[in-house]
């Protein structure tokens, strides 16, 4: 882990970051007031539906796009500081490479651009299982192979921060498993990993913390455990659902989720809830602990924002 910056300095920090495309009334706010920080040794997930502003945020973090507001800091330095940016490995757009060069030559070009001789090229090719195909031209690569080459490129200069835009795209089940192990291994080595994804199940398994973005705004930032832990929540499945919701509203906070209702209430309230539902003439199929998945939480949050 680098020691050049004060201890505790985040590897990546976004401060009130914003981006507007176009000007005046036609301007489109793609990212709005996003603040977060990624620490060394953690995998940070950036979740959001298509068009939420994930890729724009990542491009601003890499200096590809200039923010309209706010700032990006890498290891405590502004993103314009090339020394800080050179400690970042990145994968955007599923790996962008020169199609007329081989996989190995693409890494050679990148290594030279980074200012080193590429001593780690063979090691990173082995790490992403591309050593056998490294002599082939990239234009003949499958989506998954390009994605793996992109990860190899991101790791080429042994970065302290790895930024990956949808790293699991195009990978098969085994590739996703390898990616999961790779990212956890990087975090275990003290590196910071910042990844965007729409694969909520993957994020749930890999990430230590997540931020949920929607329509350019940061809806919530929390550890995965905090997000999943609804504390005293009960899941109710009853028919008709509208009548059940009406019956419980006013006594407990109620939220619609997939296949039922999430009721903020302790386990001891379960009999009272059942009585209330029966009195309202609804058929009760299940009342139990609410074990929401990240996907449900994500959908609920984004749906609330849409409303």
């Amino acid at each position: 882990m680098p020691t050049s910056e004060p201890s505790g300095t985040p590897a990546l920090e976004l401060r009130a970051l914003g981006k507007t495309y176009g000007r005046g009334a036609r301007g489109k706010r793609a990212v709005d007031d996003v603040s977060l920080s990624v620490r060394h040794g953690e995998v940070y997930g950036f979740l959001g539906p298509n068009g939420a502003g994930k890729s724009t945020t990542i491009r601003m973090a890499l200096g590809l796009i200039r923010p309209s507001d706010g700032e990006v800091r890498l290891f405590g330095q502004p993103v314009s500081d090339k020394h800080a940016l050179r400690r970042v490995g990145s994968l955007v757009d599923g790996g962008t490479f020169y199609p007329f060069l081989s996989g190995r030559d693409n890494l050679r070009v990148l290594a030279r651009t980074q200012g080193h001789d590429g001593a780690r090229i063979e090691a990173v090719l082995e790490r992403v299982d591309l050593a056998r195909d490294a002599r082939r031209k990239v234009k003949g690569y499958s989506t998954g192979m390009k994605q793996r080459l992109g990860v190899a490129a991101a790791l080429l200069d042994d970065p302290d921060l790895v930024i990956l835009d949808e790293p699991a795209n195009g990978l098969d089940a085994a590739g996703i498993q390898d990616m999961r192990n790779l990212l956890r291994g990087l975090a275990a080595d003290g590196k910071a990993v910042f990844l965007s994804s729409h694969l909520l199940h993957e994020v749930e398994q890999i990430c230590d913390r997540v931020a949920i973005v929607h329509k350019g705004k940061l809806l919530r930032e929390a550890t995965v455990r905090d997000l999943l832990d609804h504390g005293q929540a009960l899941r109710v499945e009853a028919e008709p659902l509208d009548a059940a919701e009406t019956a419980l509203q006013g006594k407990w906070p109620v939220q619609r989720v997939q296949d039922g209702l999430s009721v903020q209430a302790p386990r001891a309230d379960a009999p009272a809830i059942v009585r209330q539902l029966v009195e309202a003439g609804t058929d009760v199929f299940r009342v139990g602990p609410d074990d929401q998945s990240l996907e449900e939480i994500f959908l609920t949050m984004t749906r609330d924002t849409d409303a």
Partner: peptide, 13 residues
Amino acid sequence: GWNTWKLIIPART
């Protein structure tokens, strides 16, 4: 056209 500025811009001014 190759979309490769994204590959090399973070590596060099």
